[in-house]
Design a protein around this nucleic acid. Structure first.
Lengths: 340, 340
DNA sequence: CTGAAAGCGCTTACAG
DNA sequence: CTGAAAGCGCTTACAG
């Protein structure tokens, strides 16, 4: 690498001390305007850039934050990341991205790195396997190191950290209530994430909305074959009139199975899914979806983390809930089926 | 932050010098086995971790690479990133993610940071606006700084750097040829990225396959309304029998417009698109797509970058083409329409 | 086998 | 207003 010019070299060229150069570049009032000008001119000429590593070492900061992403192929997380990055860029922070692929072991490896001091703070959405096995030791370890941690999206865990996410329970509670009020009697759920915190919360919202008097229809499996089987049963035997889908796969699978079996959407079955609007509108028919504002979740999570980094004092941990709403498209249209 | 224990503190506790501790931890043959054991024991007890910033300062390395992503919501880039991250993690490198959102100004800002020495190397897919305006000064600047650069995916630029991507021309050339051979006469293209390098290459592949004797049907616009209009004309007036779509939006738009206008896929019109397999298979009908192996592109790009970082010598720049293939699903099925 | 010293590139009290 | 010195936390020739 073409070695960058250093303060020392600049100082030699100017026949002043390193301290003077440093102060001049930082507009110290200790230095005469003339000198400041001379120094800056030469610095600009040589395209001087302070070495961030050296600055970080002095200040005991890394100027970076770490983000653990369970699954970047999920566009939700991709957009969350973009929100985080946007906020970080405004604050002059670098974002180091780590992908756990939903694996505990990978997550542990990542937290190992994190505690080595690469970052000033960490944003985490806990991996699926970690949740399933209930092994949070490595997460607590990071907290014990007094590295500020913010949990985002997957926030249903009892840990002394800030949290930013959505109200998963409320979304499906209200979506179910809404369908019932509109006269839909048999509402079902398709989910491949029932064993995860957010999945459970969504299912519980549905359950609570139905109450004890009603029958629950729940197709749940992380295995696609098994989920297919259960969803088919729900659609064809139970003949549910609407399906709430808790994630991308269950949404698309339900949509596809209806098609394969000649069920018309929304006439025969209505669908509300968890997919992004940019996809939902193109589907045939378009699919109603929960708008989670992932970008906003990312921005907020980063904001909360930055605040925590800057003022270590402020005691109590906060939980921030980002508002969501169901966007109704063709798959929940009623005029077509009012006469059911 | 609970201050981590340092070499100095460890040395004091052990009544040895800092040098000895450092060497012991690094298994130097200079140090006696006994001492090594003592040192490591205490280090483990106190969970000592070397401060990466200090190590980096000594070694004049940052241990990080930067990735500029034009649009993370595009699952292609999300998967490329996952490939890069996987490779980097194996090599013990951190990945700093920067998102340009296809904007020149943001990209310039990012390259500004990059030349400040945050990273040992950079992976870039050049933003749409940058391509449109043809302003590559900031990219060249980064190269001038002797920071290793690898261009990924968007590689049709004349720069002295390594490149990793796919053969955009060939894909559409062969896809078109294939359709012609199967008896499809009117093949059209829908594209919202015709002004970008990869878009142009794909279109040219199509053109070349058709040759001068045939009529070109090209619906091209970055504006969705205008693209809708042009695609509709192509579908309804020109009555093309197949559409090659060069990107996510044109694929989904064509698919949706066929549906809205009662055109059956594949009987009335066939579609080959650029979307990911995880989505394509769920569509109704499923949509044939170009499998770009984004994960592999990411891995390869990172590998090439790492090689370049490690041996600055090796002269000539390389261009790596990742193999692609068209995955045929329902939208190009022929048995249904053989009798056309 | 162990340790003192120099140095990576900066910043910042402190002295002059 | 300028500069010498110490120090951030390491590593590594060099001396002993």
């Amino acid at each position: 690498m073409k070695s960058r010019i250093t303060l020392k070299e600049l100082a030699k060229l100017l026949n002043v001390s390193v301290s003077t150069v440093s102060k001049a570049l930082n507009d110290s009032p200790e230095i005469s305007p003339k000198t400041i000008e001379r120094v800056k001119e030469l610095a600009a000429l040589h395209k001087y850039r302070p070495n961030p590593t050296a600055v970080n070492l002095k200040s005991s900061k890394s100027g970076t934050v770490g983000v653990i992403i369970p699954n970047i192929a999920n566009s939700f997380f991709a957009k969350v990341l973009s929100g985080m990055e946007a906020k970080a860029q405004k604050e002059g922070l670098q974002v180091i991205t780590y992908i756990s692929n939903e694996y505990l072991e990978k997550e542990q490896h990542i937290t190992e790195l994190l505690t080595s001091g690469y970052v000033d703070g960490v944003l985490i959405a806990i991996a699926e396997e970690t949740q399933r096995k209930g092994d949070f030791e490595h997460i607590r370890n990071i907290i014990d190191f007094d590295i500020p941690v913010v949990l985002y999206d997957r926030i249903g865990f009892d840990m002394p950290v800030d949290k930013v996410g959505i109200d998963d329970h409320k979304i499906f509670f209200e979506a179910t209530k809404d369908l019932l009020e509109k006269g839909v009697n048999k509402v079902g759920i398709a989910t491949s994430i029932h064993h995860m915190g957010v999945g459970r919360a969504r299912i519980n919202g549905y359950r609570e909305a139905l109450g004890d008097s009603q029958t629950f229809y729940i197709a749940n499996s992380a295995n696609m074959e098994s989920l297919t089987e259960k969803t088919l049963k729900m659609l064809l035997e139970d003949k549910v009139e609407a399906v709430l889908c808790s994630d991308f796969d269950s949404t698309m699978l339900t949509y596809r199975l209806a098609y394969e079996n000649g069920l018309r959407i929304p006439e025969d079955v209505k669908i509300i899914g968890f997919i992004r609007g940019g996809l939902a509108k193109y589907l045939t028919p378009s699919v109603s979806y929960v708008d989670q504002s992932p970008h906003k979740i990312g921005e907020k999570a980063m904001e909360v983390l930055i605040n925590r980094i800057n003022k270590k004092d402020s005691g109590s941990r906060e939980k921030h809930i980002i508002e969501t709403k169901v966007v109704h498209l063709e798959s929940t249209q009623f005029n077509k089926s009012e006469v059911l």
